[in-house]
Amino acid sequence: MNKQQEFSEDQRDCLQEICNIAMGQAADSLARLLERFITLSVPAIRFISSDNLDAELNQLIGASTVSAVRQGFFSAHGDQGLRGESIIVFSETDLAGLAELTALEDEPANEMEEEELLLDIANVLCGACLNGIAAQLEQELGYSAPSMIGVNIPLRTLVNHRQVTWDQALSIKIGYSLESHSFQCDMLLLLPTSSVDELKRILDLFLED
């Protein structure tokens, strides 16, 4: 059994504060882009273990059928840096209505366009929030292209258990919803333990200033 990862109180408070500020900025950017008011939940920071991933996901997301997008992010310093993935989980989302809202094309949205829309939204949510966090920590983040995990899939198929190589991960969950539209989406920022050490180091540096 690995040692349970935990933050010091200072580290945790600091990370929470940084997330709060980043989210505020993200919500602002998004509202300008979509011309709609965005509601965000308070970021929930916790460690999850891969042993009972299903239960953890159930607790974090709640819905049983979801659509999801994943995107990788990384800081400089290669393996030593921050490396993680965001999983953006859409539940109770009226895709067609959302497509209408953003009206990419004049024609009604087809399946591919709906997927593209999910990828776009995921990228925007993820980038807006992570850029905010990175800016405060004076880090530069790069992103991989977002890719679809699936549309209307069971929650438990979100992560392929056989491919999981980590025991514990840091999860930062932020919920977004859109005023006047059926849209609920949760962003999970997931960092493996190796990156958590780097994050702690960065947070300590930040606290020293």
């Binding site: 998004l30 591919m112 997927e115 990828l119 776009d120 990228n123 925007v124 980038g127 850029n131 292209a145």
Partner: peptide, 16 residues
């Protein structure tokens, strides 16, 4: 979107 959010955006062959 890139100008407003200062954020990299993508497009994949699978959707487009």
């Amino acid at each position: 979107g890139v100008f407003v959010l200062k954020n990299q955006a993508f497009s994949s062959w699978e959707q487009r």
